[in-house]
Write a protein that binds this DNA or RNA. Sequence first.
DNA 1: CTTGACTCCGTACTCAAGTACGTACCTAGA
DNA 2: TCTAGGTACGTACTTGAGTACGGAGTCAAG
Lengths: 133, 133
Amino acid sequence: MAEAAYTIGQVARAAGVNLETVRFYHRRGLLPLPGRPYGAVRRYGEESLARLRFIRRAQRLGFALDEVAALLQLNDGRSCSAARGLAERKLAVVEDRLKDLSALRDQLTSLVRRCRTQRGKVHCPLIDALNEN
Amino acid sequence: MAEAAYTIGQVARAAGVNLETVRFYHRRGLLPLPGRPYGAVRRYGEESLARLRFIRRAQRLGFALDEVAALLQLNDGRSCSAARGLAERKLAVVEDRLKDLSALRDQLTSLVRRCRTQRGKVHCPLIDALNEN
DNA sequence: CTTGACTCCGTACTCAAGTACGTACCTAGA
DNA sequence: TCTAGGTACGTACTTGAGTACGGAGTCAAG
């Protein structure tokens, strides 16, 4: 089974990222530079595509590129507890952000509601709230 | 009642922001440059302090500085419906972010749980999940 | 009158995660 | 063979919200 050999534009499209992003990941050391088996043009195999998808998935889970790099170091399938530690720390951050965000939602909801029931009064409850104290 | 007349360092401390941030808000047009009533040094009154606090409060509600500028335009206390529109749009964004974030939390939670119950198996469920498909 | 802290102002740098640009080179199809 | 479009690579620009730096001026205390 011959490996597919994508050019950079093809692998970028296949992974759903911008071509320049692929180059950027090379510079960041997240993706090794492939060789050029047929001439002057580099060819990307399935393992490059898999890695690009790994990176995007990890990003969707809220990992920054530095953290993705750490996860990639652990990609031997061992070091499960190190990976878990990373995920646990990330989870704690996510839960904090959730708490903040839902407090924010409650405040905004209440301000919008007050704005809507405000009739003919001179001041805007939202602006007033921002000016308060 | 004489207005307090802060120097830039004092008003920054009073508002809990970095001195350079005050300058930055001047450059961004969010805070007017005060005069220099006693010599070469600019003096900030209570209205500057109030505005700095307004900005920070609006930021905590999730408004970007451009949006804060728009809110400040509306600070006449009228244009309540315009302010409400801003808040409603912001609320929608916040609710979207909340949905994403809680999906993220669920995924991370499940990965961490699987990592913890994994015993002696060769692969790490977290890494596997990132490599999947 | 000197010292140390503060201010003024402009410019430049930071971070994260890319995106864009320029120039040269290569490659596939008509 | 020509040409359109893709690639290689290095460098510079983008966004948002600041932070830092450098040199000159100023101010208050001792």
